[in-house]
Design a protein around this nucleic acid. Structure first.
Lengths: 111, 111
DNA sequence: ACCATATTTCGAGGATAATCGAATTGACAG
DNA sequence: CTGTCAATTCGATTATCCTCGAAATATGGT
């Protein structure tokens, strides 16, 4: 994952409604949810939701699929995982940020 | 970690210069760096850096300490860790977001 | 073709963020 | 107390984000 993609993903998640949307989609799992159901679940107007869905989609965090009359949205777990990896590797490289995670506390990466 | 704190941290990191500053501070380790050295390292004016340092500090991601005439900045690893935990727990609850991380793929937390 | 439903795009508003030079504060030496 | 260096705050400017009603688009049923 490149820095620009990480910044886009972080920026997409750094918003109350978008974080709520993403969490909702993660909870919904592989089946995803239609836009209307998301709007109802988190309680914002359709037009506002549509704006946020576009942001999340542009950041690569969610995927869209048409199903009959509805557009189904789904969380992209791989993208989220890539972001977490980026944060542990690039932000916590070689330090004790994660006890057990991507960065090794005792053995530095290479430099 | 509460949602509001996570949003603040995500927002703080979702900016090219601030991400660069934070990475610089993580690399610097426990000794930290004075503001001037950070500005020189990432190549932005002092006044702009000061703005970004305030944002990072307000988000709880870095700490400040005076040392003689300089202000030393240090990355707060615990805060970063809390953010990562929040993302794995609340964003990927019960799903396969992380192969091995905070969320258990087969065994749900409790609910 | 027509109507109903689902969602997006448009447009205008107010709010917040980023930038950077200039002026200010804080700390120390002489 | 004066000078100097480090860093911040101020002020003005520009850009971007968020919101949401109204209008437009897409899909499917009758």
């Amino acid at each position: 994952m490149k820095a620009a993609a990480a910044i886009a993903a972080l920026g997409a998640l750094a918003q109350e409604h978008r974080l709520a949307v993403f969490r909702q989609l993660v909870q919904a799992g592989a089946d995803g949810m239609p836009a209307g159901a998301i709007a109802a679940a988190i309680g914002i107007p359709n037009s506002s939701l549509s704006f946020h869905l576009a942001q999340l989609r542009h950041a690569g965090l969610i995927a869209q699929e048409r199903r009959h009359r509805s557009l189904i949205y789904r969380a992209d777990y791989a993208a989220m995982n890539a972001l977490l990896d980026y944060l542990t590797e690039n932000c916590c490289a070689g330090s004790a940020c994660r006890p057990n995670g991507g960065a090794l506390p005792e053995e530095r990466k290479s430099a």
